[in-house]
Write a protein that binds this DNA or RNA. Structure first.
Lengths: 158, 158
DNA sequence: TGTAACCTTGACGTAAACGTTAAGTCGCGG
DNA sequence: CCGCGACTTAACGTTTACGTCAAGGTTACA
Protein backbone atom coordinates (compact mmCIF):
# COMPACT_ATOMS: atom_id res chain seq x y z
CA UNK A 1 0.00 0.00 0.00
CA UNK A 2 1.76 3.13 -1.23
CA UNK A 3 0.71 5.45 1.52
CA UNK A 4 -0.32 9.04 0.99
CA UNK A 5 0.59 11.90 3.26
CA UNK A 6 -0.21 11.33 6.89
CA UNK A 7 -1.98 14.18 8.69
CA UNK A 8 0.83 15.01 11.05
CA UNK A 9 3.54 15.27 8.40
CA UNK A 10 4.03 18.47 6.48
CA UNK A 11 4.77 18.63 2.80
CA UNK A 12 7.95 20.42 3.82
CA UNK A 13 9.34 17.21 5.24
CA UNK A 14 9.34 15.58 1.81
CA UNK A 15 11.32 16.14 -1.32
CA UNK A 16 10.78 15.34 -4.96
CA UNK A 17 12.55 12.57 -6.81
CA UNK A 18 14.72 15.09 -8.62
CA UNK A 19 16.02 16.57 -5.42
CA UNK A 20 16.43 13.20 -3.77
CA UNK A 21 18.47 11.93 -6.68
CA UNK A 22 20.66 15.01 -6.71
CA UNK A 23 21.34 14.81 -2.99
CA UNK A 24 22.29 11.14 -3.27
CA UNK A 25 24.39 11.72 -6.35
CA UNK A 26 22.44 9.27 -8.48
CA UNK A 27 19.77 9.52 -11.19
CA UNK A 28 16.00 9.49 -10.95
CA UNK A 29 16.02 6.39 -13.08
CA UNK A 30 18.13 4.61 -10.50
CA UNK A 31 15.69 5.48 -7.74
CA UNK A 32 12.73 4.18 -9.74
CA UNK A 33 14.68 1.08 -10.66
CA UNK A 34 15.53 0.35 -7.05
CA UNK A 35 11.88 0.84 -6.18
CA UNK A 36 10.85 -1.64 -8.91
CA UNK A 37 13.26 -4.20 -7.53
CA UNK A 38 11.88 -3.74 -4.05
CA UNK A 39 14.98 -2.14 -2.63
CA UNK A 40 13.06 0.97 -1.72
CA UNK A 41 9.57 0.79 -0.39
CA UNK A 42 7.11 2.74 -2.54
CA UNK A 43 7.41 6.34 -1.33
CA UNK A 44 4.51 8.65 -0.59
CA UNK A 45 2.87 10.41 -3.51
CA UNK A 46 1.11 13.69 -4.02
CA UNK A 47 -2.45 13.42 -5.32
CA UNK A 48 -1.16 13.85 -8.85
CA UNK A 49 1.08 10.82 -8.54
CA UNK A 50 4.50 12.37 -8.06
CA UNK A 51 6.81 10.71 -5.55
CA UNK A 52 7.66 12.26 -2.20
CA UNK A 53 10.69 11.02 -0.34
CA UNK A 54 10.87 11.24 3.44
CA UNK A 55 13.91 11.56 5.67
CA UNK A 56 13.71 7.82 6.28
CA UNK A 57 13.69 7.15 2.57
CA UNK A 58 16.83 9.21 2.17
CA UNK A 59 18.53 7.30 4.94
CA UNK A 60 17.63 4.06 3.24
CA UNK A 61 19.04 5.34 -0.03
CA UNK A 62 22.29 6.19 1.68
CA UNK A 63 22.43 2.80 3.27
CA UNK A 64 22.00 1.12 -0.09
CA UNK A 65 24.72 3.25 -1.60
CA UNK A 66 27.14 2.31 1.16
CA UNK A 67 26.43 -1.38 0.66
CA UNK A 68 27.02 -1.03 -3.03
CA UNK A 69 30.15 1.04 -2.97
CA UNK A 70 31.80 -0.19 0.19
CA UNK A 71 30.86 -3.83 0.24
CA UNK A 72 30.37 -4.33 -3.46
CA UNK A 73 27.02 -6.03 -2.94
CA UNK A 74 24.77 -6.76 -5.88
CA UNK A 75 21.29 -5.32 -5.76
CA UNK A 76 19.80 -8.70 -4.95
CA UNK A 77 22.16 -9.09 -2.01
CA UNK A 78 21.26 -5.62 -0.87
CA UNK A 79 17.62 -6.52 -1.10
CA UNK A 80 18.14 -9.31 1.40
CA UNK A 81 19.91 -7.01 3.80
CA UNK A 82 17.28 -4.34 3.40
CA UNK A 83 14.49 -6.82 3.99
CA UNK A 84 16.04 -7.86 7.26
CA UNK A 85 16.28 -4.21 8.19
CA UNK A 86 12.63 -3.89 7.29
CA UNK A 87 11.83 -6.90 9.43
CA UNK A 88 13.63 -5.34 12.35
CA UNK A 89 11.50 -2.23 12.21
CA UNK A 90 8.28 -4.16 11.74
CA UNK A 91 9.18 -6.25 14.74
CA UNK A 92 9.82 -3.19 16.85
CA UNK A 93 6.40 -1.83 15.98
CA UNK A 94 4.76 -5.20 16.46
CA UNK A 95 6.11 -5.42 19.96
CA UNK A 96 3.28 -3.18 21.00
CA UNK A 97 0.66 -5.35 19.41
CA UNK A 98 1.56 -8.34 21.51
CA UNK A 99 1.07 -11.22 19.10
CA UNK A 100 2.50 -14.67 18.52
CA UNK A 101 5.70 -14.65 20.53
CA UNK A 102 7.28 -17.69 18.92
CA UNK A 103 6.92 -16.16 15.50
CA UNK A 104 8.42 -12.85 16.51
CA UNK A 105 11.27 -14.59 18.21
CA UNK A 106 12.01 -16.53 15.06
CA UNK A 107 12.01 -13.37 12.98
CA UNK A 108 14.24 -11.63 15.44
CA UNK A 109 16.68 -14.49 15.34
CA UNK A 110 16.69 -14.55 11.58
CA UNK A 111 17.33 -10.85 11.49
CA UNK A 112 20.14 -11.23 13.97
CA UNK A 113 21.63 -13.98 11.83
CA UNK A 114 21.70 -11.79 8.76
CA UNK A 115 23.14 -8.88 10.70
CA UNK A 116 25.80 -11.09 12.16
CA UNK A 117 26.83 -12.44 8.77
CA UNK A 118 27.11 -8.90 7.51
CA UNK A 119 29.20 -7.97 10.49
CA UNK A 120 31.58 -10.87 9.94
CA UNK A 121 31.91 -9.91 6.31
CA UNK A 122 32.70 -6.31 7.16
CA UNK A 123 35.28 -7.41 9.69
CA UNK A 124 36.90 -9.73 7.16
CA UNK A 125 37.02 -6.99 4.59
CA UNK A 126 38.57 -4.57 7.02
CA UNK A 127 41.26 -7.09 7.81
CA UNK A 128 42.11 -7.68 4.17
CA UNK A 129 42.10 -4.00 3.43
CA UNK A 130 44.53 -3.39 6.22
CA UNK A 131 46.86 -5.86 4.55
CA UNK A 132 46.50 -3.91 1.32
CA UNK A 133 47.17 -0.71 3.19
CA UNK A 134 50.35 -2.10 4.62
CA UNK A 135 51.54 -3.24 1.21
CA UNK A 136 50.81 0.13 -0.32
CA UNK A 137 52.54 1.94 2.51
CA UNK A 138 55.56 -0.23 1.98
CA UNK A 139 55.59 0.39 -1.76
CA UNK A 140 55.23 4.08 -1.24
CA UNK A 141 58.04 4.47 1.21
CA UNK A 142 60.43 2.50 -0.97
CA UNK A 143 59.46 4.68 -3.90
CA UNK A 144 60.05 7.80 -1.85
CA UNK A 145 63.39 6.47 -0.79
CA UNK A 146 64.44 6.02 -4.38
CA UNK A 147 63.24 9.49 -5.23
CA UNK A 148 65.29 10.94 -2.41
CA UNK A 149 68.34 9.03 -3.56
CA UNK A 150 67.96 10.31 -7.08
CA UNK A 151 67.45 13.88 -5.89
CA UNK A 152 70.70 13.81 -4.00
CA UNK A 153 72.56 12.27 -6.91
CA UNK A 154 73.38 9.09 -5.02
CA UNK A 155 72.23 6.90 -7.85
CA UNK A 156 74.50 3.93 -7.34
CA UNK A 157 73.22 2.69 -4.00
CA UNK A 158 71.03 -0.29 -4.86
CA UNK B 1 56.14 -9.33 -27.48
CA UNK B 2 54.62 -12.44 -25.91
CA UNK B 3 57.83 -13.97 -24.73
CA UNK B 4 58.66 -17.66 -24.94
CA UNK B 5 60.43 -19.66 -22.27
CA UNK B 6 63.67 -18.16 -21.08
CA UNK B 7 66.65 -20.53 -20.83
CA UNK B 8 67.06 -20.31 -17.10
CA UNK B 9 63.43 -20.97 -16.24
CA UNK B 10 62.16 -24.51 -16.02
CA UNK B 11 58.84 -25.64 -17.33
CA UNK B 12 58.07 -26.71 -13.78
CA UNK B 13 57.83 -23.10 -12.71
CA UNK B 14 54.84 -22.55 -14.98
CA UNK B 15 51.30 -23.78 -14.96
CA UNK B 16 48.58 -24.10 -17.58
CA UNK B 17 45.61 -21.82 -17.84
CA UNK B 18 43.36 -24.52 -16.44
CA UNK B 19 45.37 -24.90 -13.30
CA UNK B 20 45.85 -21.16 -12.93
CA UNK B 21 42.13 -20.61 -13.19
CA UNK B 22 41.36 -23.30 -10.68
CA UNK B 23 43.87 -21.98 -8.17
CA UNK B 24 42.47 -18.49 -8.47
CA UNK B 25 38.89 -19.69 -8.31
CA UNK B 26 37.93 -18.18 -11.64
CA UNK B 27 37.40 -19.46 -15.17
CA UNK B 28 39.79 -19.74 -18.08
CA UNK B 29 37.54 -17.41 -19.98
CA UNK B 30 38.02 -14.77 -17.34
CA UNK B 31 41.79 -15.06 -17.59
CA UNK B 32 41.70 -14.68 -21.38
CA UNK B 33 39.28 -11.79 -21.07
CA UNK B 34 41.51 -9.98 -18.63
CA UNK B 35 44.41 -10.55 -20.96
CA UNK B 36 42.42 -9.08 -23.88
CA UNK B 37 41.64 -6.01 -21.84
CA UNK B 38 45.29 -5.57 -20.95
CA UNK B 39 44.87 -6.38 -17.29
CA UNK B 40 47.28 -9.27 -17.58
CA UNK B 41 50.35 -9.07 -19.71
CA UNK B 42 50.47 -11.80 -22.36
CA UNK B 43 51.87 -14.84 -20.58
CA UNK B 44 54.56 -17.14 -21.92
CA UNK B 45 53.54 -19.83 -24.39
CA UNK B 46 54.73 -23.31 -25.22
CA UNK B 47 55.73 -23.86 -28.86
CA UNK B 48 52.27 -25.18 -29.57
CA UNK B 49 50.69 -21.92 -28.42
CA UNK B 50 49.30 -22.84 -25.02
CA UNK B 51 49.67 -20.31 -22.25
CA UNK B 52 52.07 -20.74 -19.34
CA UNK B 53 51.56 -18.68 -16.23
CA UNK B 54 54.46 -17.79 -13.98
CA UNK B 55 54.52 -17.13 -10.27
CA UNK B 56 54.45 -13.42 -11.03
CA UNK B 57 51.41 -13.86 -13.21
CA UNK B 58 49.61 -15.61 -10.40
CA UNK B 59 50.48 -12.82 -8.01
CA UNK B 60 49.07 -10.32 -10.47
CA UNK B 61 45.89 -12.34 -10.77
CA UNK B 62 45.49 -12.33 -7.02
CA UNK B 63 46.08 -8.62 -6.90
CA UNK B 64 43.36 -8.05 -9.47
CA UNK B 65 40.95 -10.23 -7.57
CA UNK B 66 41.56 -8.29 -4.38
CA UNK B 67 40.95 -5.01 -6.13
CA UNK B 68 37.72 -6.33 -7.57
CA UNK B 69 36.32 -7.95 -4.49
CA UNK B 70 37.67 -5.71 -1.77
CA UNK B 71 37.63 -2.34 -3.38
CA UNK B 72 34.85 -2.93 -5.87
CA UNK B 73 36.90 -1.54 -8.72
CA UNK B 74 35.74 -1.93 -12.29
CA UNK B 75 38.12 -3.63 -14.69
CA UNK B 76 39.02 -0.33 -16.30
CA UNK B 77 39.92 1.14 -12.92
CA UNK B 78 41.97 -1.93 -12.17
CA UNK B 79 43.74 -1.52 -15.46
CA UNK B 80 44.90 1.92 -14.42
CA UNK B 81 46.22 0.62 -11.14
CA UNK B 82 47.90 -2.31 -12.81
CA UNK B 83 49.52 -0.10 -15.39
CA UNK B 84 51.03 2.04 -12.70
CA UNK B 85 52.30 -1.10 -11.04
CA UNK B 86 53.79 -2.07 -14.38
CA UNK B 87 55.37 1.33 -14.69
CA UNK B 88 56.92 0.92 -11.27
CA UNK B 89 58.59 -2.33 -12.21
CA UNK B 90 59.80 -1.00 -15.54
CA UNK B 91 61.30 1.93 -13.73
CA UNK B 92 63.03 -0.30 -11.23
CA UNK B 93 64.63 -2.28 -14.02
CA UNK B 94 65.55 0.84 -15.92
CA UNK B 95 67.36 2.19 -12.92
CA UNK B 96 70.29 -0.03 -13.77
CA UNK B 97 70.50 1.26 -17.31
CA UNK B 98 71.44 4.68 -16.12
CA UNK B 99 69.49 6.97 -18.43
CA UNK B 100 68.15 10.49 -18.22
CA UNK B 101 67.91 11.15 -14.51
CA UNK B 102 65.29 13.86 -14.80
CA UNK B 103 63.03 11.56 -16.74
CA UNK B 104 63.35 8.69 -14.30
CA UNK B 105 62.74 11.02 -11.42
CA UNK B 106 59.57 12.23 -13.06
CA UNK B 107 58.34 8.69 -13.62
CA UNK B 108 59.14 7.70 -10.08
CA UNK B 109 57.21 10.66 -8.82
CA UNK B 110 54.24 9.84 -10.99
CA UNK B 111 54.31 6.29 -9.75
CA UNK B 112 54.47 7.49 -6.17
CA UNK B 113 51.54 9.77 -6.83
CA UNK B 114 49.39 6.93 -8.08
CA UNK B 115 50.37 4.71 -5.19
CA UNK B 116 49.58 7.47 -2.76
CA UNK B 117 46.13 8.02 -4.26
CA UNK B 118 45.46 4.32 -3.93
CA UNK B 119 46.61 4.37 -0.36
CA UNK B 120 44.33 7.28 0.49
CA UNK B 121 41.41 5.48 -1.10
CA UNK B 122 42.05 2.34 0.88
CA UNK B 123 42.34 4.34 4.08
CA UNK B 124 39.08 6.11 3.33
CA UNK B 125 37.33 2.82 2.71
CA UNK B 126 38.68 1.36 5.92
CA UNK B 127 37.34 4.33 7.82
CA UNK B 128 33.88 4.04 6.32
CA UNK B 129 33.82 0.33 6.91
CA UNK B 130 34.67 0.84 10.53
CA UNK B 131 31.65 3.09 10.79
CA UNK B 132 29.53 0.34 9.27
CA UNK B 133 31.03 -2.15 11.66
CA UNK B 134 30.07 -0.02 14.60
CA UNK B 135 26.52 0.37 13.33
CA UNK B 136 26.16 -3.32 12.74
CA UNK B 137 27.56 -4.16 16.15
CA UNK B 138 25.06 -1.79 17.68
CA UNK B 139 22.16 -3.26 15.73
CA UNK B 140 23.20 -6.75 16.63
CA UNK B 141 23.47 -6.18 20.34
CA UNK B 142 20.10 -4.47 20.49
CA UNK B 143 18.59 -7.37 18.57
CA UNK B 144 20.15 -9.85 20.94
CA UNK B 145 18.83 -7.88 23.86
CA UNK B 146 15.31 -8.07 22.50
CA UNK B 147 15.69 -11.76 21.87
CA UNK B 148 16.79 -12.30 25.42
CA UNK B 149 13.83 -10.29 26.68
CA UNK B 150 11.42 -12.32 24.65
CA UNK B 151 12.98 -15.57 25.79
CA UNK B 152 12.48 -14.62 29.41
CA UNK B 153 8.93 -13.46 28.80
CA UNK B 154 9.64 -9.87 29.77
CA UNK B 155 7.89 -8.52 26.70
CA UNK B 156 6.61 -5.23 28.04
CA UNK B 157 9.87 -3.43 28.67
CA UNK B 158 10.16 -0.96 25.82
C1' DT C 1 50.21 -44.20 -32.70
C1' DG C 2 45.83 -43.18 -31.43
C1' DT C 3 42.80 -40.95 -28.50
C1' DA C 4 41.09 -38.46 -24.56
C1' DA C 5 41.86 -34.41 -22.16
C1' DC C 6 43.28 -29.97 -22.57
C1' DC C 7 44.09 -25.97 -25.14
C1' DT C 8 43.34 -22.30 -29.04
C1' DT C 9 40.58 -18.36 -31.33
C1' DG C 10 36.14 -16.55 -32.67
C1' DA C 11 31.61 -15.60 -32.35
C1' DC C 12 27.41 -15.16 -30.29
C1' DG C 13 24.54 -15.08 -25.86
C1' DT C 14 23.27 -13.11 -21.34
C1' DA C 15 22.35 -11.02 -16.66
C1' DA C 16 22.76 -6.90 -14.10
C1' DA C 17 22.22 -2.15 -13.73
C1' DC C 18 21.06 1.18 -15.45
C1' DG C 19 20.71 5.13 -19.89
C1' DT C 20 17.74 7.16 -23.17
C1' DT C 21 13.86 8.42 -25.62
C1' DA C 22 8.89 8.91 -26.22
C1' DA C 23 4.42 10.38 -25.16
C1' DG C 24 1.79 11.99 -21.97
C1' DT C 25 0.57 14.33 -16.98
C1' DC C 26 1.26 17.66 -13.05
C1' DG C 27 2.16 21.91 -10.65
C1' DC C 28 3.01 26.41 -10.28
C1' DG C 29 4.45 31.42 -11.45
C1' DG C 30 2.89 35.12 -14.33
C1' DC D 1 -5.51 29.99 -17.59
C1' DC D 2 -1.43 29.10 -19.90
C1' DG D 3 2.99 27.74 -20.60
C1' DC D 4 7.13 25.59 -19.00
C1' DG D 5 9.71 22.61 -16.31
C1' DA D 6 9.50 18.60 -13.49
C1' DC D 7 7.33 14.40 -13.18
C1' DT D 8 4.96 9.81 -14.82
C1' DT D 9 5.13 5.03 -17.15
C1' DA D 10 6.69 2.13 -20.92
C1' DA D 11 9.79 0.52 -23.94
C1' DC D 12 13.97 -0.18 -26.02
C1' DG D 13 19.20 0.51 -25.97
C1' DT D 14 23.87 0.08 -23.79
C1' DT D 15 27.86 -1.31 -21.07
C1' DT D 16 30.27 -4.51 -18.27
C1' DA D 17 31.93 -8.86 -17.39
C1' DC D 18 31.83 -12.53 -18.47
C1' DG D 19 29.21 -17.66 -20.18
C1' DT D 20 28.79 -20.81 -23.81
C1' DC D 21 29.25 -23.08 -27.78
C1' DA D 22 31.84 -24.38 -32.22
C1' DA D 23 35.61 -25.96 -34.83
C1' DG D 24 39.81 -27.06 -34.69
C1' DG D 25 45.03 -27.68 -32.78
C1' DT D 26 48.13 -29.76 -28.90
C1' DT D 27 49.77 -32.87 -25.32
C1' DA D 28 50.20 -36.75 -22.60
C1' DC D 29 49.88 -41.31 -22.01
C1' DA D 30 48.60 -46.30 -22.78
Amino acid sequence: MPKTLEPVESRQDFISIGEAAERAGITQRTLRYWEDLGLLKPPARVSGGQRLYSRDDLARIDQILRMKKLLGFSLSEIKLAVESEEAKQVICKDLKHERSRARRLKQLEESAGITERQLRMVEEKIKQMQVMKKELTCDLSSLNERIAELREGVQGTV
